[in-house]
Design a protein around this nucleic acid. Sequence first.
DNA 1: GTAGGGTTAG
Length: 386
Amino acid sequence: MVCGYSARGDMDSAKRLFEIAVAKGAENSVVCTAMISGYAKTGNADDARAVFDGMRVRDAATWNVMIGVYSGAGRAAEAVDLFKIMLETRARPKVEPNHTTISIIAAACAQCGLPTQASWIQDYVDRHMMLLNSHTVAALIDMHSKCGNIERALDLFCSWRQRDLICYSSMISALGMHGRGKDAIAVFNELCDNGFDPDEICFVSVLNACSHTGLIDEGRRYFKTMKDDYNIIPTVEHYLCVVDLLGRAGCIDEAYQMITHEMPKDIEPHAGIWGALLSACRTYSNVEIGEVAASHLFKLEPNNVGNYVLLSNIYANAKKWDGVQKVRALLRRQGMKKPPGWSQVDAEGSLREFITGELDSVLEAVLEILNWELKDHGYKPIIEDE
DNA sequence: GTAGGGTTAG
C-alpha cells in the first residue's frame, strides 16, 4: 500500500500508513525506500533524508534512491558526498555499490562537471570491472564528455564491446558536444553497420553533431534519411536541430521557411526554435528576421532577458541605435537586468567560480593547479606554502 | 523499492 501511494506521489496517504508500520515495527527497507522515492517525486529531498536517516538497515537500493534524490534535485555535490559515505560506511552487512549506483552517481557527476570527480569515479569502476554494463558505460561516457574529457569517453567506448543503441547515442552526442562532427558520423555509421536501427533520440544526437560542426549537407541528408528510410516522424526537437543547423550555417531564410512553411501545423514552434533562429540572426546580423523571431520570443517567454540582449546586439551591430535604446527602455520598464554569465574551474576537485573580467581569479586558480602539478612531480612549487 | 543517450543563444 505504501509503495502504491508513493508511486502516485500521494505522500500524505503513504505517510499515514508508513507511520502505522513503524509503530508496529513492521517497516522494512523496501517500504522505506518507497517512501524516499515518493518524496523524491514530490521534490522533497529533506523529508526523504529524514526517512533515510531513521533506518537501521539500508540496502543498496535505499542508498541508490537517496543519492538519486539529490542528483535529481540538482544537488549533485551532495549526491557525490553521500556516495562517498556509502563507500566508507562500516555497516554490516556491507553495502556495495551496484550498477544502479554507478549510473546514478555518473549522472550526478555529469551534472556538476567536475573532471576530478569523474576521474575518481572511473578509477573506482576500473577497480570493480563487474560494475560495467551498457547502462553504466553509457552514463560514464556521458559523464566524461560533460566533464570535458572526450578522450576518456572514447577510451571507454572503444574498450566496451557489448554496445547497445544507447551507448552509441551517448558517444555520438559526446563527440557532437566537442565539435567532432565527422567522428560522430563515423560512430553513427558503425552503429548502422552493426545492425542497429537509430531511434529518434539518436537522430537528434547526430543532427546536433552536424549542426555544431557546420556539416550542413550531411545534416540535411540525415534528416531526410530519418524520415524516408527509418519512417521516423520528425518531432519539434528534430525541427529545432535543423533550424539550428541551417541558422548556424548562415541559411537564415531557409531556417525561417522551415519554421513557417515546412513544419506541420500541429507542431507549435516553441521558444527553443525561435531562440535558435534569433541567435543565428545575431551571428549573421539579420535585422529583419531577428525582429520577427524576437517578437515571438517576447510573447512566449517575456521574462527571458537573454532574448532582449540578443535583439539589442543585432541592432547595435547594424548601428541601429534607436533600436538599441528601445530594447533597453523595454528592459528598464520591467525592471529586468541581465545576470552576468559565469564559469567554473575545477581546481583539483574544488570549484572556483568567476565572471567575465575577473581574470585575476581565473589566473589564481590556474596557478594553484599548476602548483599542485609541480609539487606532484617533485618540482619546486612556484607558490610557497603559507 | 533503485539505473543509461537528445533538444536555441550570449
